[in-house]
């Protein structure tokens, strides 16, 4: 197989790689905020349970979570594994990344000085207004570097979908590598991820710059 054929074949999986990436970003960012708010709940049971769930999600391999979400329903309830594995893959990724984003959000929210809340309270802002208009914009700016880190990691983590044989770019590359006994597909994959991340880095850098209008 020529290098060009290899690249073309693997590129057909890029669409799926992108699907995992963008859908995970789309779902995990807001889900992470919900998890963060539950984690900071004044209700001890709610915050305790959330804390435990976060530690399980962060403390076990993403690969296991992928397997659990994809095949768990079959082993537990005898449900057939759906043909379109994109759904379980995106669910597993979104939940896992939400746990990481939740901790980033929490760190950001807790880093905002008490004086900001008090100033808003005396000025008459409601709790919701204070969070959305005063606190959140400051949090977003502060956590941007950590979020960028996670997003870059996510690009690379999409390759884990091979564990459930979801035909994204890396899984295709791996199959070619096996059938052709060639290392070349992995090099091609590496270049793909590197370029993907260069684009992500560039885009996130733009966002960070935009938020730099104050110190």
């Amino acid at each position: 197989m020529s290098l060009w054929t290899m690249v073309i074949k693997m590129a057909t999986g890029l669409e799926r790689t992108c699907a995992i990436f963008f859908l995970t970003v789309l779902f995990s960012l807001p889900l992470g905020m919900i998890v963060a708010l539950l984690r900071m709940s004044k209700n001890k049971v709610v915050s305790g349970v959330t804390r435990f769930v976060i530690s399980v999600l962060r403390g076990t391999p993403l690969m296991l979570q992928l397997l659990a979400v994809t095949y768990g329903p079959y082993y537990l309830f005898g449900l057939t594994v759906s043909k379109n594995k994109l759904i379980p893959v995106v669910i597993a990724f979104s939940i896992n990344y939400a746990a990481y984003f939740a901790e980033i959000y929490r760190g950001g929210i807790e880093s905002i000085a008490k004086g900001q809340y008090e100033a808003a309270e005396v000025l008459g802002y409601s709790k919701t207004q204070t969070f959305i208009r005063i606190i959140l914009p400051q949090v977003i700016k502060r956590i941007m570097p950590s979020v960028t880190n996670e997003v870059v990691t996510l690009v690379k983590d999409t390759s884990m979908a091979f564990t459930v044989s979801y035909q994204e770019m890396f899984t295709i590359g791996k199959e070619i590598a096996n059938s052709q006994t060639s290392f070349m597909p992995f090099i091609v994959a590496g270049v793909f991820y590197f370029v993907f991340n260069a684009i992500v880095d560039f885009a996130m850098g733009k966002v960070e710059k935009k938020l730099n209008y104050y110190q």
């Binding site: 900001q116 100033a119 005396v122 000025l123 008459g124 207004q129 208009r133 914009p137 700016k141 104050y214």
Partner: peptide, 29 residues
């Protein structure tokens, strides 16, 4: 709305311009 408080540490909103710091509460509250 009867009272205002000026803090030792100012506690301005850093993400708002000076003008917006002054205007935001009258408009939104």
């Amino acid at each position: 709305s009867y009272f205002g408080l000026v803090f030792q540490q100012f506690n301005l909103f850093p993400h708002f311009s000076v003008l917006k710091n002054v205007m935001h509460a009258p408009i939104n509250v």
